[in-house]
Write a protein that binds this DNA or RNA. Structure first.
Lengths: 178, 178
DNA sequence: AAAAGATATATCAAAATGATACATAAAGAA
DNA sequence: TTCTTTATGTATCATTTTGATATATCTTTT
């Protein structure tokens, strides 16, 4: 089987929960999986067309008022593709941390710059961790219903790793002498 | 100032340490910063040409034997660009974890599949953590010389976060009933 | 001497990114 | 009421990155 483009399986995964428009899909990606995955209109809309051509999803145009709205639903063929991808053991996990890049090359500048970059990172992580903890708390009570358990686990991944980041920040600042 | 393409600053950062060929650059990226950054010939070679056109680097062709070898050196202008980038506070840090994606969508399949995906992830992380720890140990004794401190800090980031990943794996497997 | 693996440059199709354009609908302020 | 801002919605495009492949030489192993 050909290696499926990632945006395709992301779309299928989201449509497997509920019917959505392209715009909804973008929002779901940003809100629910935004801390570990991204999507843009630039690949969502073309992918939706492709997936419909391949009969993995089906569209329904909803013209309430003057506004055209295209809502998509996953087909049996689409569910099959999603399940096949889930069962593939090959995974690609990637970090792209500009903070680490800057730290690695920090010798080209001074310690103050290196420290400031760590502090900027720390600030962002602290803020995002706050948001993740709120999600985590609200999921704790419902995590045993249906598929919430999986959502809960991804959020705890975020919380645990972000806490590790913060600990590292403290250590790194100390080592750099602050 | 225009937002600089990331591969450009990666190349400048590496050339700031020593003169390198395109092939060397690819190797350095894979070895030294591979766990948090990637590069490919497909963007390294065109970027080298562009950077030379902009006078950020200078090439020296070394034709020992029949083999042509193009070695690059950073210029003062290139150093300036590198420093400017280091001082920009805007950073973009990204995770792209297929493992989390599969976990988030695991409801479309069964718990065994979800567990297997976590185990695959765990295996990879355990292997990579072993490598990182070796690097970490060898850097510990020289971390106070020159710029090694920054290399050491990036490696400890890897070690700390990978250890957090492993702890999360244990917890996640337990929650999923194993 | 042959085979295999590392070195080296280069290109290309496919995919992702980030920005923008355009238009309607809804909410809030003046 | 009217004006303005924000959210919804589809769509495209240039730039960048990815991943694979092509081609050739040099080095090490068998």
């Amino acid at each position: 089987m050909a290696r499926e483009k990632k945006i395709n399986v992301v779309i299928l995964g989201l449509l497997n929960h509920e019917d959505l428009t392209g715009y909804d899909i973008k929002k779901r990606i940003d809100e629910a999986i935004g801390f570990f995955w991204k999507g843009s209109f630039g690949n969502i809309y073309p992918a939706l067309k492709e997936l419909e051509e391949g009969k993995y999803i089906k569209s329904r145009t909803d013209s309430a008022g003057n506004r055209e709205k295209i809502r998509y639903r996953i087909t049996a063929k689409g569910k099959k593709l999603l399940e096949d991808w889930l069962k593939e053991e090959q995974i690609s996990n990637e970090l792209r941390y500009e903070t680490l890049l800057k730290l690695f090359f920090a010798g080209a500048s001074d310690r103050e710059t290196a420290l400031r970059n760590i502090e900027v990172f720390e600030g962002e992580i602290r803020r995002d961790l706050g948001i993740l903890k709120v999600y985590c708390k609200s999921l704790e009570s419902i995590k045993d219903d249906g598929d919430h358990i999986y959502y809960y686990l991804t959020v705890t991944f975020g919380v645990d790793t972000y806490e590790a980041y913060l600990k590292w920040c403290t250590k790194a600042k100390k080592i750099l002498g602050k």
